[in-house]
C-alpha cells in the first residue's frame, strides 16, 4: 500500500513540473523584471520604480489602451447583436440549419493570418470589394485601413466576422434552454415579440452574454496578428494593440524590463475589467 500512495503524485507530476516552469516562474519573474532594465545580453540592472514611472508617462501605453477600448466599443455590441440575431433566425429554422451553422463557423476555425490577408483585399482602397460596392451605388470610397480614425474600427468589424460563428452557437445553446412554456404563457397574456424577447429571452441568456463580453475583452487585449499584418500598428499608431506594443518593446528595442512591465499592467487591467463586468452582470440578474 505504501507504494500506491505515490501513484497520484506520479500522475500529476508532469503537470506540476509544467506549471512550475511555464506558469509559476514566469509570473514571479515578470514581477522581478518590472524593477530592472535588461536587454537579455548584458547583466540585469536594478532601476527601482523607473519602469512604472515611465509607463504612466508613456503616450504609446495609453494609446494602446485607448485603441483597445475603441476596438471593444465596436466589437462587443456588434458581436452580441449579430450573433443573437443569427441565433434567433437559426433557432426557428429546421431545414438547412446545419448548413448555415457550418457556414457561419468557417472563419472561426481558420487562422487569423488567413482572415487578415483576406480582409486586407476586401478593404483595399482601389480594388477592394467594399469600396467597389460603395462606388457602384455612387458613394465615395472609404480609406478603411489608411485613415487613423477608421482603421481600428475596420479591424473590429473583421474580428467580429471571424468570431461571431462561435457566439451564434453559444447563443443557440442558451436559447434552447429557455422552456417553451414561458413563451406560451406570455402568448396567453398577449405579450408582444419584443416583450417576450426583453423579459424572457434576454434574462435567460444573460450568462451567455457575459461569456461573450469576457471572451471579447480578453480577445481585444490579445489582438496582435491582425494589426501586425494589416497596418503594422499604423496609421499614426491608431491600431497599435496591447500585445503589439509589448512585442515591439521586447523584440524591436530589447527593453525586456519595460516590456514585462507593460505585460504585467495589461494583465492586471484585463483581470480588473473582467471582474467589473462580472459584478455588473450579477447586479443585472
Amino acid at each position: 500500500m505504501r507504494k500506491d500512495k505515490w501513484i497520484p503524485y506520479g500522475l500529476v507530476a508532469p503537470y506540476i513540473l509544467h506549471f512550475a516552469v511555464f506558469v509559476a516562474f514566469p509570473v514571479v519573474f515578470s514581477v522581478v523584471l518590472t524593477f530592472h532594465r535588461w536587454n537579455i545580453i548584458s547583466p540585469m540592472e536594478f532601476i527601482g520604480l523607473d519602469n512604472y514611472v515611465r509607463l504612466f508617462k508613456d503616450r504609446l501605453f495609453w494609446q494602446a489602451i485607448y485603441n483597445t477600448l475603441r476596438f471593444l466599443v465596436v466589437h462587443i455590441p456588434l458581436q452580441i447583436v449579430v450573433a443573437l440575431a443569427l441565433a434567433e433566425l437559426l433557432n426557428r429554422t429546421v431545414r438547412g440549419a446545419s448548413f448555415f451553422r457550418a457556414a457561419f463557423f468557417l472563419p472561426v476555425i481558420v487562422s487569423g493570418v488567413v482572415v487578415t490577408i483576406l480582409w486586407q483585399q476586401l478593404l483595399g482602397y482601389n480594388l477592394g470589394l467594399l469600396n467597389r460596392l460603395l462606388t457602384a451605388v455612387s458613394l465615395p470610397r472609404v480609406a478603411w485601413l489608411d485613415d487613423p480614425d477608421i482603421a481600428m474600427y475596420s479591424i473590429a468589424v473583421m474580428a467580429t466576422w471571424k468570431n461571431v460563428g462561435l457566439y451564434v452557437i453559444l447563443f443557440l445553446v442558451g436559447l434552447q434552454t429557455v422552456p417553451a412554456q414561458y413563451y406560451e404563457a406570455a402568448d396567453l397574456e398577449g405579450a408582444t415579440d419584443w416583450q417576450k424577447f426583453r423579459y424572457i429571452t434576454l434574462p435567460m441568456i444573460n450568462p451567455t452574454i457575459f461569456t461573450v463580453v469576457v471572451l471579447s475583452t480578453i480577445g481585444g487585449f490579445s489582438l496582435f496578428i491582425e494589426p501586425y499584418i494589416m497596418t503594422e500598428g499604423g496609421p499614426l499608431n491608431s491600431t497599435l494593440s496591447a500585445v503589439m506594443y509589448i512585442y515591439q518593446q521586447a523584440f524591436q528595442y530589447y527593453h525586456m524590463g519595460y516590456s514585462a512591465t507593460l505585460g504585467f499592467f495589461f494583465a492586471l487591467l484585463i483581470l480588473g475589467v473582467v471582474m467589473l463586468q462580472r459584478r455588473y452582470i450579477e447586479q443585472e440578474n
Partner: peptide
C-alpha cells in the same frame, strides 16, 4: 490524495491568467 484541491485551484488560476504577463518571461526561459 493530499494537495488534490490545491492542484485543482492551480489549474483554475492558470486558466484565468492573461497571457500578456507570461509572454516575455517565457521567451527569456
Amino acid at each position: 490524495f493530499r494537495g488534490r484541491n490545491l492542484i485543482f485551484y492551480l489549474i483554475i488560476f492558470t486558466m484565468t491568467l492573461p497571457m500578456q504577463i507570461t509572454l516575455i518571461p517565457n521567451y527569456i526561459s
